[in-house]
Design a protein around this nucleic acid. Structure first.
Length: 596
RNA sequence: GGCCCCGUAGCUCAGAGGAUAGAGCGACCGCCUCCUAAGCGGUAGGUCACAGGUUCGAAUCCUGUCGGGGCCGCCA
């Protein structure tokens, strides 16, 4: 890292990626000068100095709060600091004006050439424009979906799948080394239930009456599994005791389920890097290993839990169990790792799995869970904190439920009534692009309304089409340009004389494009892919707005008689198109080239 | 009883501690001889649930209250 002082900074131009961090660096450098000149005391904490777009564009292109943040520690009036800072910054050839406003804001207007540089950078770098290095190659594991291999995935899984995949792409774009991972719960009692259910379908395939008793999975999706079992094993399993067929049928059925899940994920465009098996981890002795590690830290003990407050379970009685001291890390109570009969609780393999993940060398862990697993957050964070001495952060993103609607009416799901909506149903009905975009237009921790009819509506009500349409319009301009004999490939456009772009409406679009690298970093830092979707909506609005200005004012149309002028304006449109394409790429949505 | 999430325009929702809190829908008024009107411009609409606190500054952070949802020893 450069520890230099003064105004050392990268030349503005193609290389400039995030103008906001560039200007922030200039502000910090100017502050250093003030310190050197004795106008500010040494040793000020600059971490809260921010450079942001002002709320009101009339205030300028960028604003800094530096003077207000530093006023108190520096013992000077904010406006005095701001004035001194403004004097220094005016010497920067990128900054056209610097004015003090309000309680001590410093509003800056940048020279138009910077916006032209941004457009040029977008054209030169294409879909890589906006890539960030904030991740610094940090190895991050994103675990998501992890649906039990006992049946088809439903809409809730769909949202988790889309969120996790988009988050992974976002982190990759921001310079992290990302692993997409799926944890297969293939060791618990529920896969034995799957086996018994499949066995009944196997009997059915032989013409026998299936006995789907209470507690077995009644779904039709196991009928073909029964058929396949018959194909594979004939009648050889028919008259055997359960102890002989259970593991065979279990592995067979689970294989089928995982195949189905992989296909479903593929239909959404989700591809995992790693599938981790609970069974494999357990059989490799990772549970004992992890618990021994914790025991060595004095975090495992034999004890009796307090009875739960409030509603008391009927059969509660104090029992000695093996417990994990998660209260040492802020959990509400210590958590059992062994049942009273000596077998593991569900929590134990979870500890082993997270132990396994940190052993594999990840620097950061992210788990994407359904909101109903909120109760597990504290204990899992406790585990990872304990096992890594707090070195590896674990972020758990809880995905709120999806409320289904059909034509504005709530759509009740019921397995029994056959109105259970699966991931496959959704993707087949509305397609992967719409599914993904809509699922990302809400923050992960608020419930999402998903109306089968509205999401297919081709109107401005529908953000997918709004953004797609903006991209299609850019493509349309490029096609028209080609027809008009204007060279409009990216290298030709990159050579355009962008200084022609002086109209405020054009610069506004360029400014929005300049925000892209900043949005990427904010979204990546917060693990919030929805910010990408909202930004794309704003960018599309700027593009549509400029487009329509062309209706009133022919000088603002992209295609002009003068080919040089045309080239510059098309370059601007193309730059917007490139960013939309990159943003949709992160969300896993294909940019439409044409919409008719 | 405890823990987690949510509460912002009529509706659906954005909003890294910053200035006069934004967008879409719905309502009202306008814009196609013209690169795609699946679009655009304008008007109207607010006690950011409530009460305290932290500080130059709070929708944002802290505490409490109210309202909605989720979870709560050995199930997975």
């Amino acid at each position: 890292m450069p520890g230099g002082s003064g105004m050392a900074r990268p030349k503005s131009g193609i290389h400039a990626m995030n103008l906001f961090t560039d200007i922030r660096a200039a502000v910090l450098a100017a502050l250093d000068q003030l310190v050197a000149a004795g106008e500010l005391p040494k040793g000020l904490d600059m971490t809260n100095v921010a450079v942001e777009p002002p709320r009101d564009p009339a205030h300028g292109d960028m604003a800094t709060n530096a003077a207000m943040v530093l006023a108190k520690p520096a013992g000077k009036a904010p406006r005095a600091i701001a004035e001194a800072l403004a004097d220094r910054l005016r010497e920067d050839d990128r900054i056209a004006t610097a004015e003090v406003a309000g309680p001590g804001f410093l509003n800056m207007r940048l020279v138009p050439g910077l916006w032209h540089d941004v457009v040029r950078a977008a054209l030169a770098q294409g879909r890589d424009f906006g890539r960030s290095t904030i991740g610094q190659g940090t190895r991050v594991n994103v675990e998501f979906v992890s649906a039990n291999p006992t049946g088809p995935m439903h809409v809730g899984h769909t949202r988790g799948a889309v969120f996790g995949d988009a988050l992974a792409s976002l982190l990759d774009f921001a310079g992290y080394d990302v692993t997409r991972e799926y944890y297969i719960n293939d060791a618990g009692a529920q896969v034995d239930v799957l086996a018994r259910s499949a066995y009944e379908r196997y009997r059915e395939a032989h013409g026998l009456e299936p006995q789907i008793s209470e507690g077995l999975y009644p779904g039709d999706y196991l009928i073909p599994v029964g058929e396949a079992l018959k194909q594979e094993y004939g009648d050889s399993l028919l008259d055997k005791p359960e102890s002989e067929w259970l593991s065979v049928v279990r592995d067979f059925a689970m294989g089928r389920m995982m195949q189905m899940i992989r296909e479903d994920l593929a239909s959404l465009g989700v591809k995992m890097d790693v599938y981790s098996s609970e069974r494999a981890i357990t059989e490799a002795g990772r549970v004992e290993e992890a618990l021994e590690t914790l025991r060595g830290m004095g975090l495992i003990y034999e004890g009796v839990l307090e009875p739960p407050k409030g509603k008391m379970p009927e059969d509660w009685e104090p029992r000695e169990q093996t417990l994990f001291r998660s209260t040492a890390f802020g959990d509400d109570m210590d958590r059992p790792v062994k049942k009273s009969d000596g077998s593991w609780t569900y929590f134990a393999p979870d500890i082993a799995y997270h132990w396994d993940k940190v052993q594999r060398g990840f620097d950061q862990l992210i788990n994407v869970f359904g909101a109903d697993h909120g109760g597990y957050v504290k204990r899992l964070k406790a585990v990872v904190q304990a096992l890594t001495n707090g070195r590896v952060p674990l972020d758990i993103k809880l995905i709120q439920l999806v409320k289904l609607y059909k034509n504005g009416e709530p759509f009740k799901m019921s397995k029994r009534a056959g109105t259970f909506v699966t991931l496959r149903d959704v993707v087949e009905q509305v397609g992967p692009d719409v599914t993904r975009f809509v699922m990302l237009t809400r923050k992960n921790d608020v419930a999402l309304d998903f109306d089968f009819d509205k999401v297919l509506e081709q109107s401005k009500d529908n953000p997918v089409f709004y953004v797609q349409y903006a991209h299609a319009r850019v493509c349309s301009v490029l096609r028209k340009a080609a027809e008009a004999g204007i060279p409009a490939d990216d290298t030709a456009l990159a050579g355009a004389d962008l200084s022609i772009l002086t109209h405020e409406a054009e610069l506004e679009l360029a400014r929005k494009i300049a925000e892209w690298p900043r949005i990427v970093e904010i979204a990546a830092r917060g693990h919030e892919p929805h910010r990408i979707a909202f930004y794309l909506n704003e960018l599309a609005a700027e593009l549509h707005g400029l487009w329509n200005r062309g209706n009133d004012d022919a000088a603002l149309r992209f295609i002009q008689d003068d080919k040089e002028v045309s080239r510059a304006k098309i370059a601007l449109a193309r730059a917007a198109g490139v960013v939309i394409s990159a943003g949709l790429g992160i969300l896993g949505v294909t940019p439409a080239e044409e919409m008719r």
